[in-house]
Design a protein around this nucleic acid. Sequence first.
DNA 1: ATTTACATACTGATCGATATGTATGTAAGT
DNA 2: ACTTACATACATATCGATCAGTATGTAAAT
Lengths: 211, 211
Amino acid sequence: MATVPNRRRTQVDRSAETRAILIRAAIELLQTLGFAGTSTALIAKRAGVTTGALHHHFATKDELLFGVLDHASERMRARLEQEKPVSPAGTLNISDTVRHLWEVYGNPEYWATWEIIIGTRSDPALHPRVVAHRLETMRMVLHPWLEHHTSEEGTRPEVIALFEFMLIAIRGLSLERFLDKDEAYFDRNLKILADLVGQRLEALAQHNFVR
Amino acid sequence: MATVPNRRRTQVDRSAETRAILIRAAIELLQTLGFAGTSTALIAKRAGVTTGALHHHFATKDELLFGVLDHASERMRARLEQEKPVSPAGTLNISDTVRHLWEVYGNPEYWATWEIIIGTRSDPALHPRVVAHRLETMRMVLHPWLEHHTSEEGTRPEVIALFEFMLIAIRGLSLERFLDKDEAYFDRNLKILADLVGQRLEALAQHNFVR
DNA sequence: ATTTACATACTGATCGATATGTATGTAAGT
DNA sequence: ACTTACATACATATCGATCAGTATGTAAAT
């Protein structure tokens, strides 16, 4: 019989694994049950540990929520970064970009973040910290990506604004998930978004050329 | 001293008033504290009655929530309807339309509806009923308005789709309220939306004319 | 190489607070 | 008189969190 590898885990490994399992369980519950339905008891149960273990790693539920925010932030960064600029230099394929942003920000997993933002807004102590975390993530993750992907166009502020608008629209679209819309509905509206922005980018480029 | 008018209210009046007060209190709490923070005790306290009175008018909390949905639906209908088509016949002022839709759907009061949609999604019995209520409202309130306001353009399905997209974008924008954005931020993105849609409508009209 | 001493990981019971909902009594209207 | 509208008091469940105790890993002492 083969010896079981790593039968004896180090303490840091045990900690890291359990924390990761708890965070994953919290994200899944936030995604499926929402903020109100995500109790510490359910999180612990889904993670396969007890509430005692949960509170050993995260003194308060709030701390666990920030663990979720950190995790989501890192995931977002990784997913955004993995996009290869497949299009020829200077030619921004807006349809692919919309699709990619939809996969990142329209993903149900990402919604856990908004569940926390919205769900904690009644907490005068917690909400400012959540908002600050959000801003920091945008500054460290999204803005660099934005600047990188609009540099070909000259980093015009209008283009940046257009990208931000795309994110807003995509987030609005993701809300429709809660109304059990089918895939065709999402495809149709993503196409509209791509068309609108594409048309606008063309106009901007033309105007820039004429000037 | 002047006699207090209506010192003796009828039963139906008492009922109607208390129900209205309770619904208004629930909407305010859903708007400020969110679904998780809106308890029956708080609703009753804010309404100035006891939980006993609340449960007399609404046997369960769910019933009260549907009362909120009904109220919001009616409010939406009234606000949409009050818009006078100020523009000359055939000329749709897209900027005003965006502004008007923002006032209706971007209104914090309206968010209470989404708070219910999102907050109850964990409830297998309640959520389908909420979704059904939503669809009914859209069918009875929004669609007639949409058809009325796009008839001048020939009720092209593409225009309808564009309007639906506008609502999606506006909803996405309303989420940013939870991140304490300033008014300029909303104005800027509403302008982008209006520009994008306006440009698209022009293109559609032109194409229609050529054809 | 064992043993000893300690740190860390985790269990399970339990706390006070708060959630929704119910039972019963009282005041107001018909 | 009877019904409806509300208040008061309470039942029951679940929330986040604490805590005493146990299991496991780690490092120093022998």
